[in-house]
Lab assay of single mutants.
Amino acid sequence: MEVRTIKVFTTVDNINLHTQVVDMSMTYGQQFGPTYLDGADVTKIKPHNSHEGKTFYVLPNDDTLRVEAFEYYHTTDPSFLGRYMSALNHTKKWKYPQVNGLTSIKWADNNCYLATALLTLQQIELKFNPPALQDAYYRARAGEAANFCALILAYCNKTVGELGDVRETMSYLFQHANLDSCKRVLNVVCKTCGQQQTTLKGVEAVMYMGTLSYEQFKKGVQIPCTCGKQATKYLVQQESPFVMMSAPPAQYELKHGTFTCASEYTGNYQCGHYKHITSKETLYCIDGALLTKSSEYKGPITDVFYKENSYTTTIK
């Protein structure tokens, strides 16, 4: 009895394709271990004539594949690729409408935090270190965002349907971005203890939790000093293409032309909904596939993004 075979390709990165001759009487799992086709788990399936010449994702289970996976995804987590594939199996079914010149995501599976993050990423200057993220990001900007969303979920250790947080998501993504040249110098002034300067680099240099107003941050924000008295913390120097200011959701007025974009969060910790506000020729609110415009805006804002380049204080 002759062994019926077909020729397929296996890959971990969709760049390096490895030619395989597979036995049609055995499952993919018996031949390769966990195997995925377009995100779908085909591990328990036997090869079919229609699979001839198709590319299958496999887990990096030998040295060659491990090197290829690390170079593309910059992670050695053995569960990463499987999590990416199972997320992709959902995100490829989502709709990605162009809204006001940006790629958004039609609401499904509690994905409003991903839509808000995706919209924000198209408006701030950011370059990702893992080629996987950078490639998928370019495709997302062009309207094909399924891979990018699935990668975000995998890097953030999230599953489809789980509630997510924009600030946490951005923080994970910033860790995989090139923020080497970003720098922030802060000064804390206390009447009792004097003053202390701190220099922050990388992710810490672009994120701040405690106030939404970048102007206020430049002037000074009140913080408790270690001595128990009130101290003032203010920005001395900022070198970065953008800054992200966050605070627990509270009524906040966004003035046209003073910011790049913002995240609105309605609801409580267990259950809520994100919308995205962007400042173009007027203010726009993007909620999944829905767009509304207004000249002014007041609502429960939790993150505001500002364009920056270089700032030095005039406070002496």
Rank of each mutant, 00 (worst) to 15 (best):
T5R: 13
I6R: 07
V8F: 06
T10Q: 09
D13P: 06
D13C: 04
N14Q: 13
I15T: 12
N16L: 05
H18F: 07
Q20S: 13
V21N: 14
V22M: 11
D23L: 13
S25E: 14
S25Q: 15
T27Q: 12
T27V: 13
Q30C: 15
Q30V: 12
Q31R: 11
G33V: 06
G33S: 04
P34T: 13
L37P: 04
D38F: 10
D38E: 12
D38T: 09
G39L: 07
D41K: 07
V42T: 09
T43M: 09
I45D: 15
I45H: 11
P47W: 02
H48E: 14
H51T: 05
E52G: 12
K54W: 12
V58E: 06
V58C: 10
L59A: 14
P60D: 09
N61S: 13
H74F: 06
T75W: 04
T76P: 13
D77S: 10
F80M: 03
L81V: 14
L81A: 07
Y84F: 10
A87W: 00
N89T: 12
H90P: 04
K93H: 15
K93Q: 10
K93W: 09
W94M: 06
K95D: 11
Y96H: 05
P97N: 07
V99H: 13
V99A: 08
N100C: 14
G101T: 06
T103P: 03
T103Q: 05
K106R: 09
W107I: 01
A108M: 07
L114F: 02
L114H: 03
A117P: 01
A117D: 03
L119W: 03
T120I: 14
T120K: 04
L121S: 07
Q123K: 06
L126C: 10
N129L: 07
P131V: 04
Q134L: 06
A142T: 15
G143V: 02
N147F: 07
N147R: 09
C149Y: 05
I152F: 00
L153S: 04
A154P: 04
Y155A: 02
C156S: 09
C156T: 09
N157R: 09
N157Q: 10
N157E: 08
K158N: 03
V160I: 09
G161M: 03
G161V: 02
V166F: 12
V166I: 06
E168C: 07
T169F: 03
S171F: 15
S171H: 15
Y172I: 14
Y172D: 08
L173T: 05
H176F: 13
L179A: 01
L179W: 07
S181D: 14
S181I: 05
C182T: 01
K183S: 10
L186S: 09
N187M: 15
N187K: 14
V188N: 04
V188D: 05
K201P: 04
K201E: 10
V206F: 02
T211V: 09
L212H: 05
Y214K: 01
E215C: 04
Q216M: 09
K218D: 04
K219E: 09
K219C: 09
K219H: 08
G220T: 03
I223W: 08
P224N: 15
P224S: 14
C225S: 01
T226C: 11
K229M: 12
A231L: 01
K233W: 07
K233T: 11
Q238C: 01
S240I: 01
P241T: 09
A247L: 03
P249M: 03
P249A: 02
A250I: 09
Q251I: 14
T258F: 07
T258H: 11
T258K: 10
T258W: 04
F259S: 01
T260I: 15
C261A: 05
A262T: 00
S263K: 02
Y265G: 05
Q270P: 02
G272R: 00
H273F: 00
H276N: 06
L283T: 07
A289V: 11
L291N: 13
L291A: 13
T292A: 10
S295W: 10
E296Y: 14
E296D: 15
E296K: 10
D303G: 05
Y306M: 00
E308I: 09
S310F: 10
Y311S: 08
T312F: 11
T312N: 10
I315G: 12
I315W: 15
